[in-house]
Each structure stands twice: as C-alpha cells, then as structure tokens.
C-alpha cells in the first residue's frame, strides 16, 4: 500500500472534494497564493481559481460567520482557521451561531460548515500558539468534532465529513503533518463516531485521540517490552463519541488510562473517565487514570515544553505505577 503524509492526506481529501462538489469552496487566511500556513492547500489556487479558493483578511469571526451564512445560502464551505488558538476570536460565531441555527430554527435550516483548524503544541511556539481546544468544542451540542491521528483516518474521516449537513470542526495536529501512513488508492470512508482499536491488548486500556494516539502507541510498545499488554483506543471523533468501544475494551482489560494533550482541569479526558466509571464501574480493577497536559500556559523553553506535554514515558510510568510495578 502506498504511504503518504498526513498533510498529503488532508490535501487529497480537500482536492477530491473540490473536484466533486461544485458548491464547495475554501475560505481562510493565506489559503491561496501562500498555500496555507501548513501548506495543505499548496497549488489549490492554480487548480481551482480564486472563486473556489478564497483569501480572507485576518478576521476570524467574520470568516466563520461568512462560512455559516454561505452554508445557509446553499454553499458547502470549508473554512480554515489557521490554528485553533485563533478560534477564540471566532468563538461566538462557532458556538452561538453555527452550532445553534438548526436547533433554534426548529430544524428549518442546516449549516453544512466544515471548519478545519490546527491544534496542539510541541513546536516551541509558546503560550499563545500551542493550545488544544478541541475538547471545548466537543462540549457544544450542535457541533461535531473530528480528531484524526493518521493519514488513513484523516482522508477517510474527511470523506465522511463531506456527507454531513451539520457544522464539523475538523482538527489537524501541527506535529502530525509530516507523519506518514498507509493509505489505499481505492476509495474508502471512515464513518464519524466510530473509535478504532489501534493496538489490541488485554491488560490495560489506553484511550487517546489526535497526536496522543502516537504517544500511546509508543508507550504500549515500551510496556510490551516490560511484559504489559496494553490496548490503544483511538477515539477519532470527540462528538459523536463512540464510548461503547471504550467500555468494551475496559470490560476486557479492567483498567483504563486516558491521555490527552489539553490541560487536565476540565479536560475532555475527564469526560471519558467519568463515563467509564459510570457505565463500567464493575469491570474496573482500579481507578481510571489520566495523563494530560500540565496546567500551565505553554512555556517556550524546549525542556519545559517537553515536560508540559504528555510523552510515552509519562504514560508508561502511570501504567506501571497503577500495576504496582
């Protein structure tokens, strides 16, 4: 099977969507001549022209609102918010408008808005440019939140997102763009709301999403060397959330750890841990553990940033401690 990067997977997903859907257009800051801040739309302006690849001024709120309005007017917008940090300037349009128009109108209007953005730290961009807000969006009824960890999932999930009539926040991770993975030439779709067991195991369930899936997999490798067989569940979507796959895994292993990059306080991992204890308490041999980002603004220093973002060692240590090793 051919191997491509995560960036190429997202690019391919967008390109095929634009070719097949005349009502789809891309709107965002520097998506045109510049090619996108993370080079995802490089070459798009040449191929599709300025009507489909629309350059926007630095106006996040109006960009999202324009996308939403155009969706009400029959278009299928793909809005790019350069990074999730800047989504704060568009929070009102995302939460108060895009997410609510369908419900508030009694179902008269739909908002098929795709909002692509880039999450995560690890690139030494400091406190304002290294955050992970996807969990916040996941708490908003009316939104869907998709968080692919691999090129295969990025392409397959985007194909599913295209079929949606609801606003979807499609969250790419800054450190994943150059990672590679196998992606078949044949068409396939990864449906929303279906978690994926990225590594089977029977002694410990590690739940993760986005880049933390790679961290969990690396930790599981290491644990295997130490005789512990961990299962890694990739949520792939935070909303709709496939908690059943998580619960079934916990029923097999009896133990669970949630790893996420966002701040621990109020993080989405708390939601997962809570649902596990509510619905699989009898299967648990130990409390559900959480490994999460340090509760601090992201420091610039390389060593301190490393200390603030969960890595495989932290996961390994948490699992071993839980098993009394």
């Amino acid at each position: 099977m051919p191997t491509i990067t995560y960036r190429e997977a997202v690019s391919r997903a967008l390109r095929e969507a634009l070719r097949e859907d005349e009502r789809m257009y891309i709107l965002g800051e520097d998506v045109g001549a510049y090619g996108g801040a993370y080079a995802v739309t490089r070459g798009f302006l040449q191929e599709f022209g300025p009507r489909r690849i629309m350059e926007a001024p630095i106006s996040e709120s109006a960009i999202v609102g324009t996308g939403t309005g155009s969706a009400l007017g029959g278009l299928h917008p793909v809005i790019e918010i350069m990074t999730i940090n800047f989504s704060l300037l568009a929070m009102d349009q995302i939460v108060n408008h895009a997410a609510k128009i369908r419900y508030m109108s009694g179902g008269q209007f739909s908002v098929p808005l795709i909002l692509r953005t880039v999450t995560g730290g690890g690139a030494q961009l400091g406190a304002t440019h290294s955050q992970s807000f996807e969990g916040w969006f996941a708490s908003v009824p009316g939104l869907k939140v998709v968080v692919p960890a691999t090129p295969y999932d990025a392409l397959g999930l985007f194909r599913a997102v295209r079929q949606e009539r609801d606003p979807v926040v499609f969250v790419e991770h800054i450190l994943l763009y150059s990672t590679r993975g196998e992606v078949p030439e044949e068409p396939y779709v990864v449906p929303l709301g279906v978690a994926d067991i990225k590594r089977p195991g029977d002694q410990f369930t590690i739940v993760a999403y986005s880049r933390m899936v790679l961290v969990a997999l690396a930790a599981a490798e290491e644990l295997a060397k130490r005789g512990i067989n961990a299962e890694v569940v990739d949520l792939r979507c935070l909303r709709p959330l496939d908690i059943e796959t998580v619960l079934q895994s916990v029923q097999r292993t009896g133990r669970a750890l949630v790893v996420e990059e966002a701040w621990k306080t109020g993080g989405f991992g708390a939601e997962i841990a809570s649902q596990i204890q509510e619905r699989a308490f009898d299967s648990l041999d130990a409390p559900v553990l959480r490994v999460a980002g340090a509760d601090v603004p992201m420091p610039y220093s390389r060593e301190l940033e490393r200390a603030a973002i969960p890595g495989p060692a932290a996961v390994v240590q948490a699992v071993e401690t839980a098993l009394g090793k």
Binding site: G69, S70, L72, N96, Q108
Partner: peptide
C-alpha cells in the same frame, strides 16, 4: 425564523447577523 420566506433569522448576539449576511451575499454571488 421562516425558511419559506427567506427570513434567515433574528440574532440575539449583537452584531452576530452581520457576517451571516455577508455569507448569504457570498452564496448568492457565487
């Protein structure tokens, strides 16, 4: 709201309807 009359909504966050109107205009023009 009334879809049948293209009454696209009353919006209660001050200014919220402005970019929505821009988007509707964009759709019409596109």
């Amino acid at each position: 709201f009334d879809a049948s009359r293209n009454f696209m909504g009353g919006y209660a966050i001050v200014g919220g309807q402005l970019p929505l109107a821009v988007g509707l205009g964009l759709a019409a023009s596109y």
